[in-house]
């Protein structure tokens, strides 16, 4: 249930942004979430819907965009996308010196506000 921890931080951040900018209402929130974060969309939506109740965000729509894992080999510079959270071996040269370039995002991409 780490989705609830994320939602709590998200709501805190959104209420802060709303106050700073003087928006009347936040209608929609678009999040980019890396696949390595292992977020289950249904649980994220559920946690969001119950946590916003009674706040200025009640009724806001949450849109989730999953960012696939993108890996880069530091040895041969090969870059590729795959769905395997557990394998950090270069598919071209076999090197284990592989970094995760994308897939750890946890970002508010954009908002729709009034």
């Amino acid at each position: 249930m780490h989705e609830l921890s994320m939602v709590e931080s998200l709501i805190e951040e959104l209420l802060k942004l709303q106050k700073e900018h003087g928006w009347e209402r936040i209608c929609a929130i678009r999040l980019r979430i890396g696949a390595m974060r292992q977020v289950i969309p249904e649980i994220m939506h559920f946690a969001f819907d119950i946590t916003v109740q009674g706040t200025a965000l009640e009724g806001a729509k949450l849109v989730l965009e999953t960012v696939p894992l993108k890996k880069k080999c530091r040895t041969c510079k090969n870059m590729w996308t795959d769905g395997d959270e557990a394998l950090f071996l270069c598919e071209k040269c076999g090197s284990s010196d592989v970094e995760l370039v994308e897939g750890m995002e946890l970002e508010i991409e954009s908002l729709e506000v009034e």
């Binding site: 951040e13 942004l17 970002e107 954009s110």
Partner: peptide, 16 residues
């Protein structure tokens, strides 16, 4: 009419 605003900010920004 709602307007779109780009944010590109970490969800965990305050704690970070």
């Amino acid at each position: 009419m709602p307007r779109k605003i780009n944010i590109k900010r970490s969800v965990l920004a305050a704690d970070e």
